[in-house]
Protein backbone atom coordinates (compact mmCIF):
# COMPACT_ATOMS: atom_id res chain seq x y z
CA UNK A 1 0.00 0.00 0.00
CA UNK A 2 1.37 3.37 -0.99
CA UNK A 3 1.13 6.27 1.39
CA UNK A 4 -0.40 9.35 -0.21
CA UNK A 5 2.12 12.11 0.30
CA UNK A 6 -0.35 14.77 -0.75
CA UNK A 7 -2.32 14.52 2.47
CA UNK A 8 -1.18 14.64 6.07
CA UNK A 9 -0.83 11.41 8.00
CA UNK A 10 -3.99 10.92 9.97
CA UNK A 11 -6.01 12.36 7.22
CA UNK A 12 -8.23 14.97 5.79
CA UNK A 13 -9.99 17.29 8.21
CA UNK A 14 -13.59 16.55 9.13
CA UNK A 15 -16.02 18.88 7.42
CA UNK A 16 -17.08 21.77 9.59
CA UNK A 17 -20.71 21.61 10.76
CA UNK A 18 -21.76 25.11 9.78
CA UNK A 19 -25.16 24.67 11.44
CA UNK A 20 -23.43 24.14 14.77
CA UNK A 21 -21.22 27.24 14.54
CA UNK A 22 -22.85 30.67 14.47
CA UNK A 23 -23.73 31.80 10.94
CA UNK A 24 -21.91 34.87 9.61
CA UNK A 25 -24.99 37.09 9.52
CA UNK A 26 -26.56 37.47 12.97
CA UNK A 27 -28.56 40.75 13.14
CA UNK A 28 -28.85 40.58 16.95
CA UNK A 29 -25.10 41.21 16.98
CA UNK A 30 -25.17 44.38 14.93
CA UNK A 31 -21.57 44.54 13.78
CA UNK A 32 -22.00 41.26 11.92
CA UNK A 33 -24.45 42.84 9.49
CA UNK A 34 -21.73 44.64 7.51
CA UNK A 35 -18.96 42.09 8.12
CA UNK A 36 -20.77 38.91 7.08
CA UNK A 37 -19.98 37.58 3.59
CA UNK A 38 -23.17 37.31 1.52
CA UNK A 39 -21.88 34.93 -1.15
CA UNK A 40 -21.76 31.20 -0.39
CA UNK A 41 -18.44 29.82 0.83
CA UNK A 42 -16.49 27.77 -1.72
CA UNK A 43 -16.55 24.32 -0.14
CA UNK A 44 -14.10 21.49 -0.80
CA UNK A 45 -12.09 18.91 1.15
CA UNK A 46 -8.97 20.13 2.91
CA UNK A 47 -5.59 20.22 1.17
CA UNK A 48 -2.07 20.24 2.61
CA UNK A 49 -2.49 23.98 3.16
CA UNK A 50 -5.20 23.30 5.76
CA UNK A 51 -3.89 19.94 7.04
CA UNK A 52 -0.50 21.35 8.03
CA UNK A 53 -0.06 24.21 10.47
CA UNK A 54 2.46 26.00 12.62
CA UNK A 55 4.17 24.10 15.45
CA UNK A 56 5.14 25.72 18.75
CA UNK A 57 7.79 24.65 21.21
CA UNK A 58 8.17 24.87 24.97
CA UNK A 59 11.19 27.14 24.67
CA UNK A 60 9.10 30.21 23.86
CA UNK A 61 7.17 30.16 27.15
CA UNK A 62 7.99 32.13 30.26
CA UNK A 63 7.36 30.71 33.72
CA UNK A 64 4.36 32.98 34.43
CA UNK A 65 2.83 32.91 30.95
CA UNK A 66 -0.19 30.92 32.17
CA UNK A 67 -0.51 32.82 35.46
CA UNK A 68 -2.55 35.94 34.75
CA UNK A 69 -2.68 36.83 38.43
CA UNK A 70 1.05 37.50 38.48
CA UNK A 71 2.29 37.86 34.90
CA UNK A 72 1.82 41.61 34.49
CA UNK A 73 3.77 43.14 37.37
CA UNK A 74 4.56 40.25 39.69
CA UNK A 75 2.09 41.67 42.21
CA UNK A 76 -1.28 39.86 42.46
CA UNK A 77 -4.30 41.06 40.48
CA UNK A 78 -7.58 41.85 42.27
CA UNK A 79 -10.52 39.48 41.87
CA UNK A 80 -11.93 36.04 42.47
CA UNK A 81 -9.02 33.64 42.00
CA UNK A 82 -9.76 30.73 39.66
CA UNK A 83 -8.05 27.90 37.89
CA UNK A 84 -9.29 27.51 34.32
CA UNK A 85 -8.39 24.06 33.09
CA UNK A 86 -9.50 21.44 30.62
CA UNK A 87 -8.38 19.41 27.64
CA UNK A 88 -7.86 20.15 24.00
CA UNK A 89 -9.49 17.25 22.15
CA UNK A 90 -10.36 16.51 18.56
CA UNK A 91 -13.69 15.24 17.28
CA UNK A 92 -12.37 11.68 17.55
CA UNK A 93 -12.12 12.25 21.30
CA UNK A 94 -8.34 12.15 21.43
CA UNK A 95 -6.32 14.64 23.44
CA UNK A 96 -4.26 16.93 21.22
CA UNK A 97 -0.77 17.65 22.60
CA UNK A 98 1.39 20.66 21.82
CA UNK A 99 -1.51 22.99 21.08
CA UNK A 100 -0.87 26.69 21.65
CA UNK A 101 -3.67 27.99 23.87
CA UNK A 102 -3.88 31.76 24.30
CA UNK A 103 -6.46 33.57 26.44
CA UNK A 104 -7.44 37.18 27.06
CA UNK A 105 -10.03 38.75 29.30
CA UNK A 106 -11.34 41.78 31.16
CA UNK A 107 -10.32 42.39 34.76
CA UNK A 108 -12.52 41.71 37.79
CA UNK A 109 -14.40 44.97 37.19
CA UNK A 110 -15.12 44.16 33.54
CA UNK A 111 -12.49 46.51 32.07
CA UNK A 112 -10.03 45.53 29.34
CA UNK A 113 -6.49 46.83 29.12
CA UNK A 114 -7.05 48.14 25.58
CA UNK A 115 -7.00 51.64 24.15
CA UNK A 116 -10.48 51.12 22.68
CA UNK A 117 -12.10 50.26 26.02
CA UNK A 118 -13.36 53.33 27.89
CA UNK A 119 -15.67 51.61 30.39
CA UNK A 120 -15.81 53.46 33.72
CA UNK A 121 -14.63 50.50 35.78
CA UNK A 122 -10.95 51.12 36.58
CA UNK A 123 -7.94 49.26 35.25
CA UNK A 124 -6.19 47.02 37.75
CA UNK A 125 -2.54 48.11 37.74
CA UNK A 126 -1.51 44.49 38.30
CA UNK A 127 -3.64 42.86 35.61
CA UNK A 128 -2.59 42.68 31.96
CA UNK A 129 -5.28 40.26 30.85
CA UNK A 130 -3.51 37.71 28.68
CA UNK A 131 -1.91 34.30 29.10
CA UNK A 132 -0.68 31.39 27.04
CA UNK A 133 0.36 27.79 27.43
CA UNK A 134 1.01 24.61 25.46
CA UNK A 135 -1.27 21.59 25.91
CA UNK A 136 0.41 18.62 27.59
CA UNK A 137 0.81 15.14 26.04
CA UNK A 138 -2.76 14.23 27.07
CA UNK A 139 -4.14 17.52 25.71
CA UNK A 140 -4.64 19.10 29.14
CA UNK A 141 -3.99 22.76 29.87
CA UNK A 142 -4.30 25.06 32.89
CA UNK A 143 -4.38 28.78 33.70
CA UNK A 144 -4.47 30.64 36.98
CA UNK A 145 -6.44 33.85 36.63
CA UNK A 146 -9.22 35.95 38.14
CA UNK A 147 -12.83 35.63 37.13
CA UNK A 148 -13.55 38.52 34.72
CA UNK A 149 -16.39 40.91 35.42
CA UNK A 150 -19.44 41.43 33.22
CA UNK A 151 -19.54 44.71 31.29
CA UNK A 152 -21.87 46.76 29.08
CA UNK A 153 -21.22 47.16 25.36
CA UNK A 154 -22.70 49.25 22.58
CA UNK A 155 -25.19 47.08 20.69
CA UNK A 156 -28.76 47.50 21.90
CA UNK A 157 -29.26 50.15 24.60
CA UNK A 158 -28.55 47.94 27.58
CA UNK A 159 -26.58 44.91 26.42
CA UNK A 160 -24.10 43.33 28.82
CA UNK A 161 -21.53 40.67 28.12
CA UNK A 162 -21.62 37.74 30.55
CA UNK A 163 -18.38 36.96 32.33
CA UNK A 164 -16.16 35.35 29.71
CA UNK A 165 -12.62 34.50 28.73
CA UNK A 166 -11.54 34.54 25.08
CA UNK A 167 -9.69 31.39 24.03
CA UNK A 168 -7.60 30.94 20.90
CA UNK A 169 -6.39 27.47 19.90
CA UNK A 170 -4.30 25.96 17.14
CA UNK A 171 -4.47 22.32 16.15
CA UNK A 172 -1.87 20.57 14.06
CA UNK A 173 -3.52 21.96 10.90
CA UNK A 174 -4.23 25.57 9.97
CA UNK A 175 -7.79 24.51 9.07
CA UNK A 176 -8.41 23.66 12.74
CA UNK A 177 -7.72 27.24 13.85
CA UNK A 178 -10.39 28.38 16.29
CA UNK A 179 -11.26 31.27 18.57
CA UNK A 180 -14.09 31.00 21.05
CA UNK A 181 -15.21 32.30 24.45
CA UNK A 182 -15.85 30.41 27.63
CA UNK A 183 -18.71 31.37 29.93
CA UNK A 184 -19.28 30.45 33.56
CA UNK A 185 -21.91 28.17 35.06
CA UNK A 186 -24.88 30.00 36.52
CA UNK A 187 -24.34 33.41 34.92
CA UNK A 188 -27.80 34.89 34.17
CA UNK A 189 -26.36 37.13 31.47
CA UNK A 190 -25.49 34.18 29.20
CA UNK A 191 -29.04 33.72 27.97
CA UNK A 192 -29.42 37.45 27.30
CA UNK A 193 -26.22 37.95 25.33
CA UNK A 194 -26.56 38.67 21.60
CA UNK A 195 -23.05 37.31 20.95
CA UNK A 196 -23.80 34.03 22.75
CA UNK A 197 -27.08 33.89 20.84
CA UNK A 198 -25.35 34.10 17.46
CA UNK A 199 -25.20 30.34 18.06
CA UNK A 200 -28.52 28.83 17.06
CA UNK A 201 -28.48 25.56 18.96
CA UNK A 202 -28.98 25.40 22.70
CA UNK A 203 -26.74 22.33 22.92
CA UNK A 204 -23.93 24.20 21.18
CA UNK A 205 -24.24 27.12 23.62
CA UNK A 206 -23.99 24.66 26.52
CA UNK A 207 -20.64 23.53 25.09
CA UNK A 208 -19.26 27.00 25.93
CA UNK A 209 -20.33 27.07 29.59
CA UNK A 210 -17.62 25.95 32.00
CA UNK A 211 -18.89 24.14 35.10
CA UNK A 212 -17.54 24.84 38.56
CA UNK A 213 -15.06 22.06 39.36
CA UNK A 214 -14.63 21.73 43.12
CA UNK A 215 -12.28 18.77 42.69
CA UNK A 216 -9.71 21.09 41.19
CA UNK A 217 -10.35 24.04 43.51
CA UNK A 218 -7.56 24.69 46.02
CA UNK A 219 -8.86 25.11 49.60
CA UNK A 220 -8.31 28.61 50.99
CA UNK A 221 -6.83 29.64 47.62
CA UNK A 222 -8.95 29.47 44.47
CA UNK A 223 -12.00 27.99 42.75
CA UNK A 224 -11.75 26.04 39.49
CA UNK A 225 -13.72 25.85 36.25
CA UNK A 226 -13.34 23.19 33.58
CA UNK A 227 -13.45 24.04 29.89
CA UNK A 228 -12.68 21.47 27.19
CA UNK A 229 -12.06 22.60 23.63
CA UNK A 230 -12.80 20.29 20.70
CA UNK A 231 -10.96 20.81 17.41
CA UNK A 232 -11.93 19.49 13.99
CA UNK A 233 -11.04 15.82 13.69
CA UNK A 234 -9.06 14.05 11.01
CA UNK A 235 -10.42 11.27 8.88
CA UNK A 236 -8.26 8.18 8.80
CA UNK A 237 -8.94 5.68 6.08
CA UNK A 238 -6.67 3.18 4.41
CA UNK A 239 -8.76 3.60 1.31
CA UNK A 240 -7.93 7.28 1.22
CA UNK A 241 -4.20 6.49 1.33
CA UNK A 242 -4.47 4.08 -1.57
CA UNK A 243 -3.58 5.34 -4.98
CA UNK A 244 -5.91 4.85 -7.92
CA UNK A 245 -5.40 1.45 -9.49
CA UNK A 246 -3.22 0.02 -6.72
Amino acid sequence: MTQNKNSVDGGTLFFRDRDWHPPALTPGYKTSTTRAPFRPLIAMPSTLSEETGPAFGHSMFGELDNNLILNFTGQPAVGERIILHGRILDENGRGVPGVLVEIWQANAGGRYRHKKDGYLAPLDPNFGGCGRTLSRPDGSYEFLTIRPGAYPWPNRVNDWRPMHIHISVFGSGFGQRLITQNYFEGDPLIARCPIVNTIGKEEAIRALVAPLDMNRALPMDCLAYKFDVVLRGRRQSFFENKREGM
Binding site: H21, L178, I195, A204, G233
Partner: peptide, 10 residues
Protein backbone atom coordinates in the same frame (compact mmCIF):
# COMPACT_ATOMS: atom_id res chain seq x y z
CA UNK B 1 -17.69 11.61 17.94
CA UNK B 2 -17.44 14.90 19.77
CA UNK B 3 -18.70 18.12 18.22
CA UNK B 4 -16.22 20.87 17.39
CA UNK B 5 -16.35 23.69 19.94
CA UNK B 6 -18.58 26.44 18.51
CA UNK B 7 -16.76 29.59 17.46
CA UNK B 8 -17.31 33.01 18.96
CA UNK B 9 -16.09 36.33 17.62
CA UNK B 10 -12.53 37.40 18.44
Amino acid sequence: YLKETPSQTA
